[in-house]
Amino acid sequence: MKFSASSMIKIESKPWCFNDKINIGRSLMNNKKSIYAIFIWHAFFLAITMSMIDFNTVFPSLISSLTESKIIFGAIYSVMFGVPLVFNIMFGHYLSSKKFKKKFLLLGINLRAFSFLGMAFFTYTYANQNPQIVIISLFFWVFLFSFSGGFAGIVYTDLIGKFLKKGERGSLYASKQFFSSIGFLIGGFIIAFAFNISNISYPTNYALVLFMGFIGLLIASGAFWCIKEPPSKIEKYVSFFVFVKKIPEILKS
C-alpha cells in the first residue's frame, strides 16, 4: 500500500526537559512563604543539632571526662569562640567578590557536620584507651566546626538579605526563634534519652549524641538545595585593608 505525503499524519512531540522542570520547581521555592519555610526548617534542625554539643552541659561534660586540666578546657573553648571572630573579616572580604554564595553556605554546613562525625569517631574509638588522642583531635574538629560556622554564617545572613526586605525579616526571626525553642526542647529530650539508656555507656553515649549531630546538620542543610539564588551585585574590587575600613559603613547599611 502506498501513502502520499498529504495522507500521512505528522505527530509532533515536545521532549520532556528535566532542567526546565527543575528550574520551575526552584522558582516556586523562591516565593516568600517558601523562603520562610526553608530558613525555619534549618533553624529547627540546627537547634536540635546544637543541643548535641551544648556549650553548658554536654560538651563540658565530655571534656571533663577526658581531662581534668582546666587549661585544656579553656583552650578548646577559646578556639570554639575565637576562631569565627578572627576569620570572619577575611571571609567577608573573600565572599564580597562572589556573585553566587549558596555553595559556600552548603560547604560550611557540611564541614560542620563532618566535624561532628570526626568527634564522634575519635570519642568512640579512643576515649577509653587513649583520651589524649581525643583531646588533640578535638582541637582540630572544634577549629573546623567554628571556622566553617563563621564561613556559613556570613552567607546565611547574605541570603536573608537577598530574599527578604527589611520589613519582612522581623517575622522570620521571630518564627525562627519559636521553632528553635521547640528544637532545643526536642534535642534536650534526645540527649536525656541517650544518656539514660542502661545498655549504652561511656564513651558510646557521647559518640552517639555527636553522630546524631552529624545527621541533624545534614538534614538542616537539605532545604537550602531548593533555593535558586539571585546573583549579588559585585562592586569594584577593593583590597583587604580598604574593605576593613569600610566595615562600619557596611554595618550601618
Rank of each mutant, 00 (worst) to 15 (best):
S221E: 12
Y206D: 02
G170D: 15
S97N: 11
L144R: 02
F81K: 06
F145T: 04
S137I: 07
F121V: 15
M119A: 04
H93G: 08
S137P: 15
F44R: 07
F104Y: 13
F189P: 00
V58M: 09
I53T: 11
F45L: 11
Y94K: 15
C226P: 00
S96F: 01
P60G: 06
P84I: 01
F3A: 08
L138V: 09
M29E: 03
L62W: 01
F18K: 07
V79S: 04
G92S: 05
Y206L: 02
K228V: 03
I38M: 09
I9C: 01
E12L: 12
L95W: 00
V83N: 03
Y126I: 01
K2Q: 13
N23Y: 06
Q177Y: 05
C226K: 14
P231G: 12
F139H: 06
K252P: 15
G187W: 08
F39A: 06
V238P: 06
F189H: 09
F240P: 05
K21M: 08
I71T: 15
A43C: 13
Y36L: 14
G188N: 08
L144D: 03
G92P: 08
L172C: 10
A220G: 07
A127V: 08
V209Q: 01
I219K: 07
K162Y: 00
L138H: 08
Y77K: 00
W41H: 14
K98Q: 12
F81W: 05
F178A: 12
A223F: 05
G82L: 09
I136L: 09
P60A: 05
S232K: 06
A47V: 07
A75T: 13
S96K: 11
P131C: 03
S198E: 13
K252E: 14
T57L: 10
V242Y: 02
R26Q: 14
Y36F: 14
G149Q: 08
I197L: 13
I191T: 07
S78D: 08
L251N: 10
N199P: 00
S97Y: 06
G153E: 10
V142K: 03
A194K: 03
I186W: 07
S232N: 15
Q132D: 11
Y202Q: 04
I63T: 07
K176M: 15
F189I: 10
S97I: 01
I53S: 10
I191C: 13
F87D: 04
I219Q: 05
K98W: 00
D20C: 13
F122N: 01
F100R: 12
L217R: 02
L251H: 09
K21L: 12
K233G: 06
L208P: 02
I186M: 10
I234N: 03
S78Y: 02
S180D: 07
Y206S: 05
V58C: 04
Q132H: 11
F179C: 11
I48P: 00
P15S: 10
K102Q: 10
I133T: 06
L111D: 00
S34I: 03
M50C: 07
F243E: 11
I135P: 00
I133W: 06
K14Q: 14
G213A: 11
W16M: 09
Y237C: 00
M1N: 13
C17M: 05
D54C: 06
E249F: 13
F241E: 05
M52Q: 12
H42M: 05
L172T: 13
A75G: 04
S61E: 11
L144V: 15
I186A: 10
A152I: 09
N128D: 11
A120W: 07
A207W: 00
F140S: 06
